[in-house]
Structures are given as C-alpha cells and as structure tokens.
Design a binder for these strands. Structure first.
Lengths: 184, 184, 184, 184
DNA sequence: CATGAATGAGCTTTCATTCAT
DNA sequence: CATGAATGAAAGCTCATTCAT
C-alpha cells in the first residue's frame, strides 16, 4: 500500500488542482483532498508546509513555462508574425494540466491574488500584453491583446453549456485569439 | 443616528457587494460586513435569512435587467445591427453597481455557480449568446460572441495594471465587444 | 441556564487562571476551560479574541495594582521604612487571586515572557527592585531585594510539601521578605 | 561527517536542555530539536524512546549529583557550619549545565512536575530543606532555608535586566544563600 | 429593529509517535 | 544509525447561524 518516492506528492498536486479548479480554493478543504487520496490530512503536511504552498507549487510549473516563453519573446522583434507565434506557443503551454491551472487562476481571482506567487503570475500576464501590443496603441487594441489571452483561458468555460468537443473548442479559441492580435 | 426604513438593508447590499467583489464570497465573512456597517452580525439576519440570500438579492437586480434585455431581444430579428444594439444596451446595464456585480460573478465562478440564482445567471448568459450568434455559425464565431460579453465584464480587470481612466476603458471595451459580433 | 451579563466572562477568567497556574499555560487547552464551565469553545471566543487575550486580561488586573503601588512609591523617599512599607503593600496585593497570578508568572516564565503584557510585567518587577535597593548597593544586596519579592511569590510553593496553613505561610513569607530588605 | 559513538545522543541532550530552558518544555517540539542538529525526528527516537525520556535523562544527571550530596549530608551533624558547606557544595553542582537544568526546573514547574523523575526531584529538594533547617524551627526559618536554595536557582534570572557578569552574580548568590541559613 | 450570547461544525495546522527500509 | 513517509489526536480559531430579550 506504500507509494513510490514522491508519488504521493504528485498525487496531492493533481487532486488539489482538480478540486481547486472545480470548487475554488477556499471551498476546498485539506480534508477533502486527503480523503480523495485515502491518506490523512497530516500526510499532506508532510509534503507541503501549508495549503498555500500546494498552490504555490502548482504556480511554479506555470511560472517556469511562462518564463521560458517570455525569454523567447525577448529575443524577438514584436511583429504581427512573432506576436501570433507567441500566442500559438502560449496556447500550447496551456494544454493539459495548464488549462485547469489557468481556469483556476481566472475564476478564483480574489483568492489567487493573495496567494504566494499570485502577484507574480499577474505580473507575467502584464508582460505578455506588453509583447503583444505596442504601448502607444489605441485603447481598444490594448484590450484586444489582453482578451486574446483570455480567449484561450476562457473559451472552454464560455462554451461549457454547448456539447462541443473540448479540443475543437481549444482550436477555435486559438483562431479567435490570433484574430485579436493587432495587424500592425 | 437612526436610519430610514430599509436604509440598512441597502447598506448591507452595498457593502456586501463591495467586499464580495474585492475579496471573494468565501473570504468575506458576515462579521466583516457587520463591522464595516457598525452593526452586529445578528442585525444582518434581521434583513436577510442567510449569507446566500444577500447574494441572491444582488443577483435579482441583475436578473431583472437581464430579463428586460432578453425581453426586448425576443422582439428583434437577429441582425448585425440589432445584435450590436443588444451589446450596447448590455454595456449600459453593467455600468455602476452592475459592473462590480459582474466582476464578482466572473471572478468567483466556483462560488457563484452553487449559489441560489447562480445557475440562473449562467443560463441567461447562454441566452445572450444565442441571440448574438447563429446556432450554426462557425465555432470561432460562437466563441467570439461570448468573448464579446466577457470583454465588457473583464476589460477593467484586464487593464488594472495600467493607469487608464475607468470610463475610457469601459468605452473602449464596448468598441472591442462590438467588433467581436459577427458581421452577418 | 443563561447567565448575568458578563458573568461568563468572569468565570472564564477565574477558571483559566486556576488552570494556567495549576497546569501551565501551554498544557491548558481552551477545550478544558470550556468543559469546566460547560460552555463550548466558541463561547470563549465570544468573550476573548484569543487564548493569549485571556491571559492579557488577567495581567491587566495585576498591572493596575502594580502601577498604583509604583505610583505611591514615586512619592516616597527610599528609606528602609518606606521600603518595608512597599513590601507590606505588595504582600497585600498578592493575596487572593493575585497569588495564583504570580505563581503562574513565576512558574511559567518562558510562556509568560512571550505573552502580550508579559514583558511589561517583567519591567514592573525591575522597577520594584529599583525602589527597594540603591543602584550602587552591593551585588548581594541587589539580589536580596529581588529575592525579597520572590519570597512572597514562592513561599507557598516552597512549603507545599509541608502541612502548614496557607495564611501562616504567607505571614511568615512577609517576615522573610522584610528581613531581606537592606537595613540602609 | 560521522559522529563518535553516542555523540549524537549527547548532542540531543545538549540542544534539548538549551531549548527547554529557553522556551519551555511544551513549546519546544522534537522537530525543532532535530532541525537544530540537522537530523530527522526519527533519529531522536533512535536515541530516546519518548520526548519525556530526553528530559528524564537530563534529570538523571542532576539526580545523581543531588544523591551524592545527600549521601554526604547523611554523614554530617546538621550544624551551621555543615549546612553552609552543604550550600557551597550545592552551588558548585549547579554551575555549568546544571544551572540551565535548574532554571528549566524552576521556570517550568507545571510541566516538570508531571514528568518522569520530576516528582523525584521535588522530593530531593525537600530533603535538602530538611538538612538545612530543623523541623521545629520557626516558619520564617523554614522558608529562609528554602529561599536559600532558590537564590542559587533564580539569582541569574532575577538580575537578567542588569548588565552584571554571570559569574559575579553566581558568587553573590552564594553569599545571599549562605546568609539565609539559620545561624543555629 | 437590533443586540448579546452562544453553538455546532468545520477549518488549518502542529505534535509526538511509529515503522518499514 | 538513521531516514522517509505517514498517522491519530488534538490544538487554536473562524464561521454561519439561532434565539431570547
């Protein structure tokens, strides 16, 4: 019944993300996470110092990928083409577990904002926008660039009441996101 | 020091919305609301049966206005022009307190979803989308119609790190929203 | 079954002091205090914001009496006579509930030190010593002055294994304390 | 990096005593002791069966020295001279680590009382008093004899807010202790 | 119209302890 | 000789809610 080294840690992260995204951070108790994994609450504390640290650990994954993307962007001239490439790469990042992560971030803003690493994520989003649109662009274009990102985050949620395949939605969302990037 | 009939009730709603939007529903305790108003928690219970009922009461305001808008839309042919008019009217609704309400809804999805009246609001959003885009439109257009609405909800949040005037943002957001409505 | 206004608060203070003095601060749980009073833990929190605040409230009583004594001492020339009078007055203060308080303080030093108001109490003790002995007295006299105070605090504890009447002990302790005050 | 046979055991005792004396027994967790030694909690359990056993082991050292002193005293007539010699010998015992031990005992009474060996230590103190003062002496003299011992225990603590050298304090404390022993 | 007092349920967190490896 | 992983029990605390006055 014992698990491989750090298997439990990974399981905790997985279940926690699932529940945080589904029910929200505050509403998800450690008891609930523990019960799903059939361990005790105290076991969670062996692997993470606090509830907040579980989230922080999840943030880090995203943080790292976002950083890599930003690193790439710093070597690019901000042309329509490179901006679209940026969006495409970002879309790829937030496939899989990333998508749940972003859904969590976007739909639990007040909680996330106060969490360790939360401010940092917000700052990163701001940097995304700065690459995607010129500082002196029109206000609508500024907003468009940001809604481009949000399309990728929210498309699935926006279409949740329709019976459309998840992957198709994500592909269409990329389309929408690309079209929101200013042409020049 | 006395208050006009049901002034208190209105104050509770105001402060509650403020705090729910700012800190989230779960993180905002009745104690906090009561303290801000310098009344006791028990006083809140004189005006509202439960915490949830405070939110429900806030929802109702929005619900009524949304209903009116839908009523109007039912008398319209869904043309590009009427759709744009719909968006314009919706933008007007969510000025003022409405904006805080929507920010709350969008950024506390997991909490709101389970609240009395929450599902209803979601359904209404779905109806909005159905008026704004044809059922057999392309998937990207379906998403665009929904992101149109979300632009109005989230523009202020998306631009929060920039130093732009709130009303200008909202005007630009309307611009973006209108452009996301399919041309035909 | 209801109690008079603030009766409960006083009961909490009484039982808490009893248990803190008997078992120590850390070992005494709020559950235990609550059970003795046949109320719930939450009731304690209605009357005191934290466990620490219960102690702080107890400290305040002593603090006030100590302050009064110091106030008196400030109007006195520090003669052997006035110093003995000081000790006599202090002995009177720490009769009754005061004695349990001091026993708590003296026998839970590490806990008390970190408690709100704890440092303050220690400072007061220092001021006592400063009145009781000249700054340039010999080191043994410095210590004697302090042990004089401690005699009053600890005599009961020191004699606990003997079968002597509590009041007699306290009277004898005063005798010892007085004899420890430097003759001039 | 390896340690001599049972070096670790000694380190645990040393660090534990340090922390128990400084923060109190209850407030000091095994985690904290382990962290200071850069070993795991489980390692502590290799050397000691329980937390209590660490203290018990510390008590034993003192117990042994106290026993030796008592053994010596049993061969002595209780004269003023032999009583003073007793105090001098005791003062020597509680130099060094012994002093921290006694500080711990005196300032954590409620915890110590319930610990394995705690009652025993208290009994020994009682035996000290019995040698130092006649059973039929006056009550003040009974108390004086006990305060004599306490002077040695508490002098350092009593003078903590002054800037006097530790060894000087201890020498003066011995002076005070000796003077508290009844002349006949 | 509102308060003071209290509760039951639940939360996050910490602790001493165990045991297979 | 020691660790990694886990547990059961309990702690301090907060919350929404109730109700007599």
């Amino acid at each position: 019944m014992t698990r491989r080294r750090s298997d439990t840690r990974e399981q905790i992260r997985r279940v926690a993300l699932e529940l945080f995204a589904e029910q929200g951070y505050e509403k998800t108790s450690l008891r609930e996470i523990a019960e799903r994994l059939e361990v005790t609450k105290a076991a969670l504390y062996y692997h993470f110092k606090t509830k907040e640290d579980i989230v922080a650990s999840l943030f880090e994954d995203f943080h790292a990928e976002a950083e890599e993307l930003l690193e790439w962007s710093r070597g690019q001239e901000p042309t329509p083409a490179s901006r679209r490439e940026f969006v495409r790469r970002y879309a790829e990042i937030i496939q899989g577990p990333g998508r749940e992560m972003l859904r969590f971030m976007q739909q639990n803003e007040p909680a996330v904002r106060d969490l360790k690493g939360g401010a940092d994520l917000r700052a990163r989003m701001q940097l995304f926008a700065e690459f995607l649109v010129d500082k002196d662009s029109s206000l609508p274009d500024q907003i468009r660039a940001r809604m481009s990102i949000f399309s990728l985050h929210l498309a699935h949620f926006a279409m949740r009441d329709t019976a459309v395949d998840e992957d198709e939605v994500q592909a269409a969302a990329l389309q929408v996101a690309l079209d929101l990037i200013p042409e020049d």
